[in-house]
Write a protein that binds this DNA or RNA. Structure first.
Length: 575
RNA sequence: CGGGGCGUAGCGCAGCCCGGUAGCGCACCUGCUUUGGGAGCAGGGGGUCGCUGGUUCGAAUCCAGUCGCCCCGACCA
């Protein structure tokens, strides 16, 4: 590309609405422009980056037998009714009607569409396994789009689906994707980790997320790099043990605590440490209300009870609690409630002695509570949120709590879609069985944004070779000078012949402007052609990542550049 | 959906409290000079002050409503 003819609207000033680094950079480099909240146009520079990412993903998908499709984004609503996801997605699905008033939806994902093809076309186990994918725009009416390309309502996603006749086949397909994803993210220059996750609205038997640590991320994970433990806090555990307590029992007693409701308030009032309390929370699940107990200084992790209480679980309303137990929310406790509603206690309370908790009577708490004696929970289970510094469950090393960007998510779906949709094949015994599915997604825009979150500096982008819109810029200074222009053109063609994506900055602009622009755009390499170096038969080369800069005789410069290029590729080549 | 902030030239902002000719920097156009880290001088173009209604002799400014955008939370591949 000759930049004198390019549409490359870079910005010197930072747009006011951008907060996170990647968003600022994508706007400043002219990669994207907003159209409305959570919807962006990709301009040529951004589209080149997106294409690099898509090509990389495509290459890896094809390498293990993935077959690319292109499916409609506009879909009949009935399709979503078949699996119940019309209501599951709710407002998150963009909906519309055609002229005949037929209801339709813009696909937020493609399990149903792919599954409908599978059910119409696949007949025998002999045709399996199949791995199908597409790279497509998805639509999700997110409640709150944010952080530029990190959470949008309209985004490019690679979504893949596997179809197997049995669980063993699914395991294999899943593993193929898992391996490919590691190669993809490694090649994209990202330091990622894999965490076990909850499957959410996608459903299925298990899922893992590919995460990149970043303050701009929306997920929170607990990790320890040495032991390799990594989990979304939704499911993270620690090996925190509650040691046996042998304290002499203090007498059970009711104490007046007028107006003191929270653990902190009552703890201060009674001069007890918050850890000496039992926090009692009432939730309403599919089978009615339950009481959940955690230590006073711990926090309940709702995701951990979700599988037991059902997806519609919610905290009980204060009025419900009052009616059920007869006390306000600040004065609840398990004592005397056995049999009235199920009581689940966190594992850490198993041996707890001499605890304080609510008396189930307004303005009163009780002290001297012996768990298992004063009251007996129906069940002990892991209910708490892990915290920074707690021992990881593998080797007991301290956990680090980090923010992370979710780049990819892989699911073992099982028959969640194939069963209701009637997608079956005949197995070896001639029996009709539902196809076992897996689903595997990567957010392309997120991948690019995450790469920029991870690799940039004050001057701008620092692209890995794999995603760089251009590998090298040939920058001519005093572009009107005939010798400079000719030399620039010659180098431009030479680089292209080497197979590099090259931009020729032949714009008639001042040197400072062109250097700033090149650093911002983040070409991994800059080759500068100037009148003064040309006169001495020299070239200047610069390596963006390291800031190395050299003025060398022509051949030496080109040799050095080749070495640098090889080194940059090496950084993103799986060993 | 709850809380907060912001809508004034393409971008970044001031003016608003205290009503009275709509401003600054960058960008853009013309000319001259300039060419190694986002140039200088001179001249110039560009605005229904988000929208609607109200108060007023007079509204960017005050009041009400509405739309949009950003952030925090809730939620969320």
């Amino acid at each position: 590309m000759r930049l004198s003819k390019a549409f490359l609207p870079t910005l010197k000033e930072v747009p006011a609405d951008a907060v996170v680094t990647s968003h600022k950079l994508m706007l400043r480099t002219g990669m994207v422009r907003p159209l409305m909240a959570g919807v962006y146009s990709y301009l040529p520079f951004g589209q080149r980056a997106a294409r690099k990412a898509m090509d990389l993903i495509r290459e890896e998908m094809d390498s293990f037998g993935g077959q690319e499709f292109s499916l409609p984004t506009i879909t009949p609503i009935e399709l979503w009714d078949e699996t119940g996801r019309n209501s599951d997605f709710g407002n998150e699905m963009f909906r519309l009607k055609d002229r005949k008033d037929r209801e339709m939806a813009l696909a937020p994902t493609h399990e149903e569409v792919f599954c409908s093809i599978a059910r119409n076309e696949l007949r025998s186990y002999k045709e399996l396994p199949q791995i199908w994918y597409q790279i497509q725009i998805k639509f999700r009416d997110e409640p709150r789009p944010r952080s530029g390309e990190l959470r949008t309502r309209h985004f490019i996603m690679k979504d893949a689906y596997s179809f197997d006749v049995n669980e063993e086949g699914l395991d294999k397909s899943y593993q193929l994707h898992r391996d490919a994803y590691q190669r993809i993210f490694h090649r994209a220059g990202l330091k990622f980790f894999i965490v076990g996750a909850s499957s959410g609205v996608m459903g299925g038997s298990g899922s893992e997320e590919f995460m990149v640590e970043s303050d701009a991320g929306e997920d929170t994970c607990a990790i320890n790099e040495e032991s390799g433990y990594a989990a979304n806090v939704e499911v993270a555990t620690s090996s925190m043990k509650d040691e046996a307590e042998t304290d002499e029992a203090v007498t059970f007693a009711k104490v007046h605590t007028p107006g003191y409701k929270t653990v902190e308030e009552v703890a201060a009032f009674l001069k007890l440490d918050p850890s000496r309390f039992i926090k009692s929370l009432v939730y309403v699940g599919d089978d009615g209300p339950v009481m959940l107990l955690v230590r006073g200084d711990d926090e309940l992790n709702e995701d951990k009870v979700l599988p037991i209480l059902g997806a519609a679980m919610r905290p009980a309303q204060p009025e419900e609690v009052k009616e059920l137990i007869g006390a306000e929310v600040g004065y609840l406790g398990p004592v005397g409630l056995e049999g009235k509603l199920p009581i689940y206690a966190d594992l850490r309370l198993k041996n707890a002695r001499n605890r304080a908790t609510g008396a189930n009577e307004d303005e009163y708490h009780v002290v001297g509570v012996q768990v298992g004696d004063t009251f007996k929970p129906d069940k002990f289970m892991d209910l708490r949120m892990v915290r920074e510094g707690e021992p990881d469950p593998i080797g007991g090393r301290p956990l680090k709590i980090v923010r992370a960007i979710e780049l990819g998510h892989i699911f073992k779906l099982g028959t969640k879609y194939s069963k209701p949709m009637g997608a079956t094949v005949l197995n070896e015994n001639g029996k009709d069985v539902p196809i076992i599915m897996g689903s595997y997604g990567i957010g392309v825009g997120r991948l690019i944004a995450a790469a920029l979150e991870a690799h940039s500096d004050d001057s701008g982008c620092v692209w890995p070779m794999t995603l760089a819109p251009y590998h090298v810029a040939v920058i001519t200074l005093k572009s009107k000078d005939e010798n400079v222009a000719i030399e620039g053109e010659r180098l431009y063609k030479m680089m292209q012949e080497k197979g590099l994506d090259v931009a020729l900055d032949d714009r008639n602009l001042r040197p400072g402007f062109k250097f700033k622009d090149a650093d911002l755009l983040g070409y991994p390499f800059q080759v500068v052609v100037s009148e003064r170096n040309l006169a001495e038969g020299k070239l200047e080369i610069k390596r963006r990542r390291t800031g190395e800069q050299e003025v060398l005789a022509f051949d030496e410069a080109l040799t050095q550049l080749d070495e640098w290029i090889a080194a940059e590729w090496d950084l993103v080549t799986p060993k």
